[in-house]
Computed example of a mutant assay.
Amino acid sequence: MSNLTIAVTEFLLMGFSDIRELQILYSFLFFLIYSAGLMGNLLIVIITTFDRRLHTPMYFFLRNLSIVDACFISTTLPQASVNSLMNNRAVSIIGCAAQIFLVVFLGYFEFTLLTVMAHDRYVAICHPLHYPVIMSPRVCMQMTLTCLFTGLLYAGFHTGYTFQLSFCQSNVLHQFFCDIPSLLKISCSETFGNTLSLLASALVVGVGCFVCITASYIRILSTVLKFPVKEDQRKAFSTCVPHIIVVSLFLISVLYVYLQPPSSSGSIKDVFFSLFYSMITPFLNPIIYSLRNKQIKEALKIVMKRKHSLKSKG
């Protein structure tokens, strides 16, 4: 068994098709989605950074979410696109470990950041007079750094714990990128401790954040319904709806993939739901926020006008 374990020096990711034409098509689609998602998120980062009117807690968190999404989508899609184009599914153990660390870290960071954003909307709508004090720049920075550092610890623990296992039965991962559930399914070591820690931590983080988000929106809803002016109700709902959509897509897809027992065989459903939290959600974030946010659209127009005027002068 030890000889077989040493022989596993790389993993093979699942291909989307064995037909060459379809491989090229998938590669092209992944590249388009990646380019659009990356450009959209970076555009929000640029707009919220250089437009002083958007230097508020809400847009501070939105800027950080866009940075996380840009990194998240860059962790999985470029490799998937290249692998499909080159018909090469191999990934080294070090590369797999690095990808798992980044996916877990960025996923944790995104979900906790979405929780903080829900709290920000609750304070802004339910306690508008105390909002500048409760959500001061210092508090916003502390919240963001807490999400970041706890995410590093969370990802570091699970990545290290996973790669203490032996892999001697198979090196084929039924996934288009490296993730912990896929590795647990092919390990020849005892994975009960890994499974228990993964389920427990996923439930604590996932359910904990979900409870906080739900509580925030219940209080927001009860406050918004008391608004005398219907237009104010509509504006409040339009601010919160994108957040709810992103949270729902992200949570459902992550929990489906990570709460399955390792004994279950890989299926197309796993890949489908993985696409949602690793690709679709980061891609949709800039679309949802930019299309439903007048301030973002106005700031974008100003940036485009400045760019046009600079070109004219040049």
Score class of each variant (00 low, 15 high):
270 D>G: 02
271 V>Q: 05
271 V>N: 05
271 V>P: 01
272 F>I: 15
272 F>L: 15
272 F>M: 13
272 F>H: 13
272 F>G: 15
273 F>V: 12
273 F>L: 12
273 F>K: 03
273 F>N: 08
274 S>L: 05
274 S>N: 09
275 L>K: 14
275 L>P: 00
275 L>V: 14
275 L>Y: 10
275 L>N: 06
275 L>F: 15
275 L>Q: 11
276 F>A: 01
276 F>K: 09
277 Y>N: 08
277 Y>Q: 06
277 Y>K: 05
277 Y>R: 06
277 Y>T: 14
278 S>E: 10
278 S>T: 11
279 M>A: 11
280 I>E: 04
280 I>T: 11
281 T>V: 15
281 T>R: 10
281 T>N: 12
282 P>Q: 04
282 P>W: 02
282 P>M: 01
283 F>G: 06
283 F>L: 10
284 L>W: 01
284 L>I: 03
285 N>A: 03
285 N>R: 15
286 P>F: 03
286 P>Q: 04
286 P>A: 08
287 I>H: 00
287 I>A: 04
287 I>R: 01
287 I>Q: 00
287 I>E: 05
287 I>S: 01
288 I>C: 10
288 I>V: 13
288 I>F: 05
289 Y>D: 11
289 Y>V: 13
290 S>I: 07
290 S>W: 02
290 S>R: 05
291 L>V: 10
291 L>Y: 06
291 L>S: 13
292 R>G: 00
292 R>F: 14
293 N>S: 14
294 K>N: 00
294 K>F: 09
295 Q>I: 04
295 Q>A: 03
296 I>E: 00
296 I>G: 02
297 K>W: 08
298 E>D: 07
298 E>M: 03
299 A>T: 11
299 A>D: 02
299 A>P: 03
299 A>K: 05
299 A>Y: 05
300 L>G: 00
300 L>R: 09
300 L>K: 01
301 K>W: 07
301 K>A: 02
301 K>N: 03
301 K>Y: 08
302 I>A: 13
302 I>M: 01
302 I>C: 12
303 V>R: 02
303 V>D: 00
304 M>I: 14
304 M>V: 13
304 M>H: 09
304 M>W: 10
306 R>V: 14
306 R>E: 15
306 R>G: 11
306 R>P: 04
307 K>H: 15
307 K>F: 11
307 K>Q: 09
308 H>N: 09
308 H>E: 07
308 H>M: 08
309 S>K: 08
309 S>Q: 07
309 S>L: 14
309 S>F: 06
310 L>R: 11
310 L>H: 11
310 L>M: 12
310 L>S: 09
310 L>V: 14
311 K>Q: 08
311 K>F: 09
311 K>R: 14
311 K>Y: 03
311 K>I: 15
313 K>W: 12
313 K>R: 15
313 K>C: 12
313 K>P: 04
314 G>V: 07
314 G>K: 04
314 G>S: 13
314 G>W: 12
